[in-house]
Amino acid sequence: MASQYTPETLQKISELLTKNPEYYTVWNYRRQVLRHEFTQAASSDSAEAAADRITTLIKNDLLFLMPLLRSFPKCYWIWNYRLWLLDEAKRLLPLSISRRIWEEELALVGKMLRLDSRNFHGWGYRRVVVDTLETLTSEEQGESMAQAEFEYAKKMIGTNLSNFSAWHYRTKLIQRLLNEKSATDAERRKMLNDGQTMAPNLSQSERLDYVRQEIEEIQDMLDGAEDCKYIYQALIDCTLLASKIQGTMSSDDQQKVLSWISELKKMDPLRRGRWLDFERSLCA
């Protein structure tokens, strides 16, 4: 059957996959059929005609996947196949055409994430699409999309504050932006004010000031929210960070940390073992 790469074969394959997209061997067979058609297209009269035919083949196949993705959004093999198809576009088509195809993919991911902003796979997929788009440019070292993606993450957080995926994406982008911009200290601090990471090149006393200020702010949050364990954890983390920058922990700080741990033991009995270990390590 391996030699039958006809439109009828493709039709049969499509029917099979529509019934059961988990048949990964059938997806592989579809790849072989497509590769065969690409080769035929490549022998067209002109390079332009070849690109046209290949573009049509790829676009049609991307369209074929859409209803399947809607019905089986979690099926790994469909996504895997889709990425292969997009990579083929990158491999076989002139830059301007493949770039357009990948840009359309980014728009599609955006639409997906609007419908389900916590879609873990959607966020991972977005990163892959952005990574590729950054390489699909005439610039020698690629073109960074970090700033645009940072704005996107901020926008998504704006619509839903508890979107962990968007927060994660944003944290990663802050680090990248800081590196890329080799920003001035003032620029870095401005980003840190709404980010959560420590910039690498603040001076030691600036870092300590920053952390102490953070501790004060968090302590204010405790007022009226004494049963929120994340606040205690943040206080402990920041105090430990301050001690690390100072090179030592004052006995005052140690007492504070121990008192926060005993609150945690009370309000977080599931993880009692963790807090006991922590307490012991501080007293050792």
Binding site: F120, W123, G124, R127, V128, F164, S165, H168, Y169
Partner: peptide
């Protein structure tokens, strides 16, 4: 590896 201590499916991907 991520800042939260977990690992993702590719470098840069959220912990799972």
């Amino acid at each position: 590896e991520n800042l939260d201590g977990g690992y993702g499916i590719h470098p840069g991907a959220e912990s799972h």
